[in-house]
């Protein structure tokens, strides 16, 4: 075999996803949490594009492009929020932002 079967791509996707998940659960700095989220989004894109090739179809790529656009929007707003929180003199600690408690 000289090509790369689909399953390898899927395994890579799952691995990256797990890494991103770990990052989300362990990081306290909101900025670094967002980075881990980007990782997860990318792993999803890999799976999508992989399947696009498997089915010989552009649909998966379209989906991946939309995901990217949405990720961009999400980062913009997320970073804006982080800045706004920082302005309130709160420490950059996700545990501090717990007003939704209870």
């Amino acid at each position: 075999m000289s090509g790369v079967p689909l399953i390898w791509y899927l395994l890579l996707s799952f691995g990256l996803f797990g890494l991103g998940l770990l990052g989300v659960m362990r990081r306290r700095n909101p900025l670094l949490m967002l980075l881990a989220v980007e990782l997860m989004l990318n792993s999803a894109n890999i799976a999508l594009v992989g399947f696009a090739r498997h089915w010989d179809n552009t649909d998966g790529q379209i989906f991946a492009l939309v995901v990217m656009a949405v990720a961009a929007a999400e980062v913009v707003i997320g970073l804006g929020l982080v800045v706004a929180v920082f302005r309130q003199r709160l420490a950059l600690n996700v545990d501090e932002m717990s007003s939704l408690k209870g």
């Binding site: 989300v24 659960m25 939704l100």
Partner: peptide, 10 residues
Amino acid sequence: QDGLVRTYAF
């Protein structure tokens, strides 16, 4: 509902 995002993720 402890208000911590990480808990919710978990």
